[in-house]
């Protein structure tokens, strides 16, 4: 119940801050572009758009959210409230993943792309969103301004994005699947282009495990660096 309330409060805050409105605008923008793409290009562009924007939105917003909560004293209140760190982090992850899934589904549905595996799309979006949102919380530690946060995300983004080019294919390029973003993109592409069940199953298990590891790590960093500030 406490967890549900926290998620609801976060979603309410995000709505008030205009996240949903912005994503309506962005979704319309993508739909306009996608509607003019030929089918063969759409099959590549659609998963790339869903992966690169809605799934990653958590990384973009979480820095500002935590910084604002720090300034407003929310984090100090949280320490003495019954809400546990894991619940606080999960509520952020779930509420941002909700917008990701909503945007991903709307973009996909109105692009009239046939043969989408909706369950895989749902799992790929949620698991990608979780990893990026939790990365954002960890990057946030030690940042005093939004500019610092945005700049600190650049090397992490490069670390996540550059290995994705391995999907073009070259000798031993499969090894890059160990990078969570590559595994997530592979799963996302599979949701649109088809994927053998055992590969999809393996990727989901791997990404779930990575999400769990990221959660433990984020909890540690959040308590040590953000709440108690070393």
């Amino acid at each position: 119940m406490r967890m549900l309330n926290a998620v609801w409060a976060d979603m309410h805050f995000q709505m008030k801050q205009g996240f949903f409105l912005v994503y309506v605008i962005i979704t319309i923008m993508y739909l306009i572009i996608l509607s003019f793409l030929p089918k063969d290009i759409l099959s590549i562009a659609l998963p790339l758009i869903v992966f690169s924007d809605p799934s990653v939105l958590g990384l973009f917003f979480i820095g500002g959210i935590i910084m604002l909560e720090k300034v407003q004293g929310v984090l100090m209140v949280m320490v003495v409230s019954p809400l546990r760190t894991i619940e606080y982090i999960l509520s952020k992850v779930i509420s941002l993943a909700f917008i990701s899934v909503l945007a991903a589904f709307v973009i996909t549905y109105f692009s009239h792309y046939e043969s989408v595996n909706w369950i895989l799309l749902f799992l790929a979006t949620i698991l990608t969103s979780g990893i990026f949102t939790m990365s954002g919380i960890m990057i946030n530690a030690g940042c005093q301004t939004v500019n610092q946060y945005m700049l600190k995300t650049i090397p992490y983004m490069l670390l996540f994005v550059l290995p994705c080019f391995s999907l073009i294919g070259f000798p031993y390029s499969e090894l890059f699947t160990i990078v969570p973003s590559v595994a997530a993109l592979r799963l996302m592409l599979g949701a649109y282009m088809g994927i053998v069940w055992y590969e999809a199953f393996g990727l989901v298990i791997y990404l779930s495990a990575m999400n769990y590891l990221f959660l433990r790590w984020t909890m540690h960093v959040f308590e040590k660096k953000i709440v108690y500030q070393d």
């Binding site: 996240f19 306009i32 572009i33 003019f36 973009f60 959210i65």
Partner: peptide, 29 residues
């Protein structure tokens, strides 16, 4: 506040689409 600033920054990225407007066969756009 900072979060609204980020929301604005995200929305402002959408302005770039108008740079590609004449690639789309939409007169109203």
């Amino acid at each position: 506040d900072k979060v609204k600033g980020l929301t604005f920054a995200k929305a402002l990225n959408a302005l770039a689409i108008f740079a590609f407007a004449d690639l789309l066969p939409l007169q109203w756009f």
